[in-house]
Amino acid sequence: MDTMDFIIGKYNYWIYIVLMMIGFYAMIAKNNFAKKIVGMNIFQTAIILFFISTASKTGGATIPIIKSEHLAAGAQAITAPQYLNPLPHVLMLTAIVVMVSTFGVALAVLMMLYRKYRTLEEDEIMAILKMEKD
């Protein structure tokens, strides 16, 4: 029963692993370069989901803003169970910006690739490169 609770209670983490592996599969196995970039985006979002899941707490914890009822509740203004951990949130805020800039650069490279080879398939580009070498 205890292990079942552990498995079911952490469902966010299971879905994070599934999403991460979907992205990883797309990065490795897909032939189209645009699909590979989509896979990279899914991978990064899965990691952000993992970090946000570590920050969440049960029992009515909210964002770290001091309200008047928090001050009235006790002598101590800041008690940890009342607030979510803000550190993973801030880290993932940076990660989202990095994700979008990586995506933009990847799209620019993709457009240059298409302009030169007129295709986005990896095997076709490899064939053209091989033909040019011979």
Binding site: I52, A55, T62, I63, L84, V90, L93, I96, V97
Partner: peptide
């Protein structure tokens, strides 16, 4: 839903 509103609106 998990309370990370800053991350959510940036995303």
């Amino acid at each position: 839903g998990m309370g990370a509103v800053d991350v959510a609106f940036t995303e």
